[in-house]
Amino acid sequence: MKDFFEVLEELYKKICMFQNQDKLLAHMAANCLALLLYFQLKEKITLSNSWIAFCQKNLSEYSESNKVLYCLWTLTVVMKEIFKDTCSQKTEILKQFLTPFDSVFEGFYNSLFSQHFESHQDTSKTVNSLICFLEMLELLTASRIHLELHCTCQRIVFLKPSCVLDVITWPIQAFVKRKFIIFVKKCLLRKLGEDLCRGSVPSFRPPDCHLEGDMLALADAVLQAVALGLLRTLSIHGKPSCFGGGELQPGCEQVAGPDHVILRAASLLIIKSLEIKFQNCASVTEMQGNSPNSFGMRSNG
Rank of each mutant, 00 (worst) to 15 (best):
M1Q: 08
D3K: 11
F4A: 11
F5R: 14
E6T: 13
L8H: 09
Y12V: 00
I15N: 05
I15Q: 04
I15L: 06
M17C: 08
F18N: 14
N20E: 14
K23S: 13
L24F: 09
L24W: 05
A26I: 00
N31H: 11
K42G: 05
E43V: 02
E43C: 10
K44A: 11
T46V: 13
T46C: 08
S48I: 04
N49W: 01
K57M: 09
N58Y: 12
S65I: 00
N66K: 04
K67W: 03
C71A: 08
W73A: 05
T74K: 02
L75G: 02
L75A: 09
L75V: 09
V78I: 15
V78A: 07
E81I: 00
K84Y: 03
T86P: 01
T86G: 09
Q89A: 12
K90R: 15
K90Q: 15
K90S: 04
T91Q: 13
T91N: 06
I93A: 05
Q96Y: 03
V104P: 00
F108T: 01
F108N: 04
S114K: 08
H120D: 05
S124F: 06
S129L: 15
I131G: 00
C132G: 04
L134N: 14
M136Y: 01
L137F: 04
L140D: 05
A142P: 01
E148R: 13
H150M: 08
R155S: 14
R155P: 01
R155I: 01
R155T: 08
I156A: 03
F158A: 15
K160W: 00
P161E: 09
S162H: 11
V164S: 03
D166M: 09
W170A: 01
P171H: 06
A174I: 07
F175A: 08
V176Y: 02
V176Q: 04
R178D: 11
K179R: 15
I182V: 14
K185R: 15
K185F: 06
K185A: 05
C187H: 03
C187F: 07
R190A: 11
K191E: 15
L192C: 07
L196Y: 12
C197N: 09
G199K: 05
G199H: 05
R205L: 12
D208V: 03
D208S: 12
L211Q: 10
E212K: 11
G213R: 06
G213Y: 07
L218R: 03
A221R: 03
L223D: 05
L228F: 07
G229R: 07
L231I: 13
L231V: 12
R232S: 14
P240W: 07
G244E: 08
L248H: 07
Q249I: 07
Q249D: 11
Q249N: 10
E253A: 13
A256M: 05
A256S: 15
I262H: 00
S267E: 10
S273P: 04
L274K: 05
L274R: 13
K277A: 09
F278V: 09
Q279C: 11
A282I: 02
V284Y: 09
N290H: 15
N293Q: 13
F295Q: 07
M297V: 10
R298S: 12
R298W: 10
